[in-house]
Design a protein around this nucleic acid. Structure first.
Lengths: 242, 242
DNA sequence: CCGCTCCATCTTGTATACAAGAATACCGAA
DNA sequence: TTCGGTATTCTTGTATACAAGATGGAGCGG
């Protein structure tokens, strides 16, 4: 092998690689609701579990803190953050605003080949809906949204949306969507692609907005159904500036 | 004093506080152009200079890396990142899109009192323009944009814009704007506030877009004038998906 | 039985030691 | 003089030791 350090590597994987896996696991566990708000995380235990030191673990926890998924109290502990309704509203605003403008640009810029790509996504999703493959469908959904951003010629903007989307996905996972809901999402995708195809930017933007708001609309109801997941907002402090 | 640790504190300041100052200083130095792309940073030297250990220094450098201001090459060094034109384009897209929608919402939601607040900003800026106080003007500019976001009822979205704005400010600092340019910015602010006052959301959005694009328009020229600051793009690789 | 105090044991924050690789300076040989 | 090899000294990455505080339980006194 090339240059294998016994202390820095273990089972042929660097601490950084293990840290990335740790990040993925924690991110998925929190967003999916498998880890509930208030649940405790120990740097030491995570370090032991992944056979790395606290240093890379701490970097991972800092990333998750930036994403708003954790809450760190010095000398006390690290906890899964409650869902903050204001943060969810802001995330929705950011995603909706950016993707609506992007689909407008995409509609104006798209080539024939890019239209065919979107049609291929629709065909794939039709199969996934029939098969009832939720995970596959969500993966295809995300890839398609990312590609629309690429067609709008702002590919890396999706990275920003992805980081903000965690807040929205956390709520969506609580609404355990059924097959009918999956089919509706698919119809909305069809609609969006049709408008892109017909070069109707206004309609494409409207369809995208409706699409992105379907899940968001039920937030208040979800917050009532799962009060232990949410942080009770102090009814808008609306602080004044100097 | 309360509980002063000789090892953890020095001159009555925690390592975290010094780290925050370090972040501010580096951020300002890079965005202003005082530190040029390619310039080297040493974790050890920074730690010595601020009388803290490498641990908090590394956290600061990770933050700046996330903001796209640094480039870290393992076992080689940490360097000031070149300005990436694609990243600047994306930052412009993000800021323009979010602030244009925000000013529309602000126009619809604003109260009389909030209009008066904006008028006070204009009065302040008029004084600052007369005095030729660029730094003061930019501070007021930023505060006003933040408050428009607050009036749109999405205050924390400004944090996102602020982090993205670094890329744009880096370019703007290269264009060393003169007094005439300052006056033009001021007139654009007046225009925006007037439209908000008259509840004309369409005009407010158009004025905001024009305002945010004034600096952006000169980017290509600036990139030609300061080639050593920019990363030559590989003329759109446009990678294909699987 | 209740309550207070102290200590053992957690937590994260910070400093430091060590590892591995890359670059450079230096020294010797051709 | 020039080329090549070696050793020193940088760099960041990683592990670990230590510090300070908070928590909870045990033990003792009322």
């Amino acid at each position: 092998m090339w240059g294998m350090a016994r202390t820095a590597m273990d089972r042929f994987e660097t601490a950084k690689a293990k840290g990335d896996r740790l990040h993925q696991h924690l991110h998925a566990d929190i967003v999916s609701g498998r880890m509930r708000p208030g649940e405790r995380l120990s740097e030491t235990r995570l370090a032991e579990r992944y056979a790395i030191s606290r240093t890379p673990v701490r970097e991972v926890l800092r990333r998750l803190l930036e994403e708003g998924l954790l809450r760190v109290v010095p000398q006390i502990g690290t906890f899964v953050a409650p869902i903050n309704l204001a943060a969810v509203r802001d995330s929705q605003f950011i995603r909706e605003t950016l993707e609506c403008r992007a689909v407008r640009l995409a509609t104006e810029n798209r080539t024939q080949e890019q239209c065919r790509l979107l049609r291929r996504y629709l065909a794939q999703q039709a199969r996934l809906v029939s098969a009832g493959d939720r995970l596959g469908f969500f993966a295809s959904d995300e890839a398609m949204h990312r590609d629309i951003m690429r067609i709008a010629d702002h590919p890396s903007v999706w990275d920003l949306i992805a980081s903000v989307k965690a807040q929205l996905d956390r709520v969506r996972y609580l609404s355990l969507d059924d097959d009918a809901w999956l089919a509706m999402i698919f119809r909305q995708h069809q609609e969006i692609v049709d408008h892109i195809d017909k070069r109707d930017a206004d309609s494409a933007e409207r369809a995208m907005q409706a699409h992105l708001r379907t899940a968001f609309g039920a937030i208040e109801r979800i917050a009532e159904l799962h009060p232990d997941f949410f942080e009770q907002a102090a009814t808008h402090p609306q602080k004044e500036i100097a």
